[in-house]
Design a protein around this nucleic acid. Sequence first.
DNA 1: AGAAATTATTTTAAGCCTGAAATGTTTTTG
DNA 2: CAAAAACATTTCAGGCTTAAAATAATTTCT
Lengths: 178, 178
Amino acid sequence: METPSSALVLDRETKASERPGDHKDELRLWLRMLTCSTLIETEIRNRLREEFKTTLPRFDLMAQLDKTAVGMTVGEVSQRLMVSNGNVTAVVAGLVTDGLVDKRSAPQDRRVQILTLTAQGRKVFRAMAERHEDWIAELFAGLDQPAIAQLFRLLGETKTSLHRAIAGRAGEAAKGDA
Amino acid sequence: METPSSALVLDRETKASERPGDHKDELRLWLRMLTCSTLIETEIRNRLREEFKTTLPRFDLMAQLDKTAVGMTVGEVSQRLMVSNGNVTAVVAGLVTDGLVDKRSAPQDRRVQILTLTAQGRKVFRAMAERHEDWIAELFAGLDQPAIAQLFRLLGETKTSLHRAIAGRAGEAAKGDA
DNA sequence: AGAAATTATTTTAAGCCTGAAATGTTTTTG
DNA sequence: CAAAAACATTTCAGGCTTAAAATAATTTCT
């Protein structure tokens, strides 16, 4: 950002990372990211309700199923959406009732439930997805292409950092368990 | 889906913004941002439960109240947290029961409820906030200071873009209403 | 002043979401 | 082969969240 000269000025001019034990910058970054996510989520939620009388969890679930031709198990969906298994069970129940999703146990392993979009489900989803893509573009319209690319890249680094930190802690916990 | 020949090859080489009507980059950006937010939220939620036996909504609410000496109204909190009024009412109820938050109607306007942290609430929150700040720093540890600053700046631009897009649409809706 | 509009909050009904316990199924192991 | 372990999903209890309707208080307008 700027070019400071002496060591003390350096502390003043650079960000808090120079001050030991201070992590305000990371906190502010997180709060700003959360604000952005919440604004987008709320807006998409509103538009899905107004324009398609549906909810974001339903849309997200259908989006996963649309990505595959052969269907997906409950566990697979739950992992991809980063929600609990029980949650998937509940949301799927609604979609099955509405004839948008088909659920059947796998013939070779009856523990597993295979979820697929019905023909109608696929049709309905495709229509929503098209609008959804426009909405997202509209929301990000204030960023030019290089800014989008840059942001995408930095969020990639963030994701890596998060995975490392979370896995690290899980490892610690496991060590304690053993 | 097939390999195009002349003009379209250019499309392949340049970014999607060159293809009219294609907004895949924005969509991928949003999905990546959502992944990051969800990872952080889930991790913070887990740690708050394990270490302090509390929930993220409660923590967030207390964080707002900690920012003021004179207290905050229900509406003010709801706006800042970007959640519904009814939600604040419910979460506050729990915190009042636990003696962490105090709620009383404003003397000059009895419609308004003033929320403040109790002494205990402030003490409990401060302890959690300190840990929380460390956790966030830990999660972002893979980013160096310039990356954090850059990301913060880009998310600022994003926020501006979002506000403009959302306000714009609200304006349209209002026009229709009149 | 009194009616109407506005404002702040709460209530309600419905759906989302979680972690943990329970259920049913398959695989491993003694 | 049968018991035990592992696995996939569902159920359950509890809390969060929302939009919309209801309630309560204040302000505005005539």
